[in-house]
Design a protein around this nucleic acid. Structure first.
Lengths: 210, 210
DNA sequence: TAGATTGTTAATCGATTAACAATC
DNA sequence: TAGATTGTTAATCGATTAACAATC
């Protein structure tokens, strides 16, 4: 299937693209003009054929013998991921993980603006987290009228994840990034991205063995 | 390849097992005795055939018509992942993400004990994070003699990730769980698990489209 | 017994890797 | 020019899904 003349990229490719971008932005800061798939592969411990294949999905065209223009490749990947446009997000659950995500610079560099946080704990309401206000969850509807966030970040305890997600959906949120270890059941037009810290731990302990 | 009479599980299977475990622990709390692959699949939005296949890697044997014993299945998955044994970890980088990981209950439930945090910022040294002490990074070597952690959790800025990882390796750490968006180059006997928040964001924004 | 569910073997699907012509 | 690197098509590999006999 082709969209805009580009084949749909496999999920593992999409997941690797941010790592390429990170490396390229580093190279750009160091005034590097061009970079080959071989260079990228070596830096990230991948195979160069995989790098070339991944990059080709973004529509970039390289030069034999030379490689890719660093600036052009950054734009190609950013554009492909939709990271050259700003998008607004709200975060629900101003606990320590929520605070960490509010403070993560990477998101704003990728066009994601977390405009506000919401919680129900009285001691958190009215505070700020990394410069952004914390509102009571009851104000979600009203604040959404102002911000119109498309993405809702969920960092609440698993027991209230489903009901909180439903509140987000009710305010017109289109996608939910769920950091709580609970499966959400939502209308199918809602995009859900499940983030599971335990999955990473499982891989780690399995590899570690014994 | 078989280990202990069990085939090696595919990586995607290993990553799904914690979600099964979470659901099962919930069922156990609700006094449920048995559960079928169909039930699990429905709750987690998966296909029952995939659930059966995944579970079979852990060595569990079910009963046709009935399913699996909840308690037995919990033990089977926990045992397979090595989560029924305690293992010690240290965390380097007591920033907001580090603090969030120190406070994550899920880890201790899976046998992972984060015994201490390390940092270089004077205002953090001597403090506690969720009840665990924060030491200066220079004390890592000495503290490791006491704790003997096998796992090092890395939540430092990417610019110092490599050098910090090398310090961890020098103290005898066997595995590094890297939350910093930097690729580590370490001796091959060291297990590295890369955790990349941006990868999840990439999938989310691609699905969201436009 | 009847039939739902397990466990295994085979088929399919999709991602990775290999091969190689094109090209700067 | 010579040769390193790209881009594409084909082959391989591994995970998912289908089919179905076994069984409680």
């Amino acid at each position: 299937m082709k969209v805009n003349g580009l084949k749909k990229a496999p999920l593992p490719t999409v997941r690797r693209l941010p790592a390429y971008l990170h490396l390229l932005q580093d190279a750009f800061r160091r005034m590097q003009i061009s970079i080959s798939a071989t260079d990228i592969a070596e830096a990230l411990h991948l195979e160069s054929i995989q790098v070339r294949k991944d990059l080709s999905y973004t529509g970039i065209v390289g030069k034999p013998r030379i490689g890719y223009q660093v600036k052009e490749l950054i734009d190609s990947i950013s554009g492909f991921l939709g990271w050259n446009r700003q998008s607004c997000a709200v975060l629900v659950g101003a606990g320590s993980l929520g605070a960490a995500l509010m403070g993560f610079n990477g998101f704003s560099r990728h066009g994601l603006q977390i405009t506000a946080a919401f919680d129900v704990a009285p001691d958190k309401i009215g505070q700020t987290l990394h410069g952004r206000p914390v509102f009571h969850l009851e104000e979600l509807q009203e604040q959404q009228k102002l911000f119109g966030a498309r993405i809702g970040i969920l960092t609440v305890p698993p027991a209230v994840a489903q009901q909180t997600a439903e509140k987000l959906v009710a305010t017109g949120i289109e996608a939910i990034w769920n950091f709580s270890p609970a499966t959400l059941t939502l209308p199918e037009q809602i995009t859900v991205q499940q983030e599971d810290l335990s999955a990473g731990l499982a891989v780690l302990t399995m590899q570690l063995g014994q």
